[in-house]
């Protein structure tokens, strides 16, 4: 016998899946925007990106358990701390490697650091999977038959606020103008009085800060462990390839697309196929339009 509510339920399922995808995508966008900035402005593929994300999650976990700071509030101190860590890392190690060898060497150096940090995180926090569970973790809002977790909703809102912040910093402030100038033409920027090495370090710091802040948000939404770092690096790469390099809007578009792709694949093809479909989209996208849907925000530089 036919189910009288059949088309209706199918539609609700699609809407619910789309909602899940949008929520997931919002968080993916925030996790990728730092990678996108560093890749676009410095040309560095930062393989330590996933480590920044995971470190942010662990930092938020420690702040929550030791000082009782809410993970969403923890994004601010974590971001500030990682700005300075990222700055020191770029000036102290990555820039040295690039000047001694080549830009490709930065790939190896960041990979080496990722291995070291992953090992250290395993030694300090154990390889176990962790989650951050504040008191409101399990409450959710319902609209008719649609349901959304409160934490996820807040996570998306926080992500969007951060992305807007990044867009405003890049487009409206003198600091953002220096970053864009350096990305377009380091030599010309230098001639106009910009301290290029300092700005490169600051740009990297900004990318690291956003990555760590996203980690604090992700820690509440998804379980994490030291070995999930490479997932977040790859994820950021896919988001950037989908959306386009260097701009917050590209990261947002790419992140939301990726969120939708993974939630629809999980719902309608099977949860074990999400990675395969994600990478398939990545490869196809690279072959058809390698500059991403929105192109490179720093296009003049290459």
């Amino acid at each position: 016998m036919r189910d009288p509510h059949f088309p209706d339920r199918q539609a609700m399922l699609i809407i619910q899946t789309a909602l899940n995808g949008l929520v997931l995508g919002g968080v993916y966008s925030l996790a990728a925007v730092g990678f996108s900035l560093i890749f676009g402005a410095l040309g560095i593929v930062n393989l330590t990106h996933g480590i920044f994300v995971i470190c942010g999650a662990y930092a938020a976990m420690v702040l929550f358990h030791v000082f009782g700071i809410d993970p969403f509030l923890a994004t601010v101190p974590v971001a500030i701390a990682f700005f300075f860590i990222g700055y020191a890392y770029q000036r102290g190690l990555i820039q040295v490697a690039i000047s001694r060898a080549s830009l490709v060497a930065s790939l190896l150096v960041t990979f080496g650091v990722a291995l070291i940090m992953r090992n250290l995180l395993q030694l300090v926090f154990s390889p176990d999977v962790r989650t951050i569970t504040p008191s409101y973790s399990f409450s959710s809002l319902t609209f008719g038959s649609l349901r959304i977790d409160i934490v996820r909703l807040i996570a998306v809102l926080v992500s969007i606020v951060f992305l807007l912040l990044m867009a405003l910093v890049l487009s409206k402030t003198a600091f953002g103008r220096r970053i864009r100038a350096t990305a377009q033409q380091p030599l010309a920027a230098n001639l106009s009085g910009v301290n290029v090495p300092h700005v490169l370090g600051q740009t990297f710091g900004l990318g690291a800060a956003f990555a760590a802040a996203s980690g604090a948000v992700l820690g509440i939404v998804q379980p994490f462990s030291p070995s999930s770092e490479d997932f977040w690096t790859l994820n950021a790469f896919i988001v950037v390839v989908l959306g386009g390099v260097g701009s917050p809007s590209g990261a947002l578009l790419g992140g939301i697309l990726l969120g939708l792709i993974s939630s629809f694949t999980a719902q309608f093809i099977g949860p074990s196929y999400t990675n395969a479909v994600m990478f398939l989209v990545l490869v196809i996208m690279l072959l058809i339009r390698p500059q991403g849907l929105l192109g490179s925000a720093f296009g003049e530089s290459r």
């Binding site: 060497a105 190896l108 150096v109 080496g112 650091v113 070291i116 090992n119």
Partner: peptide, 15 residues
């Protein structure tokens, strides 16, 4: 300490 050692070697070689 496997990963740590590999990572250190890679960085040292590049530098």
């Amino acid at each position: 300490l496997h990963l740590l050692a590999t990572g250190l070697v890679v960085i040292l070689i590049v530098l």
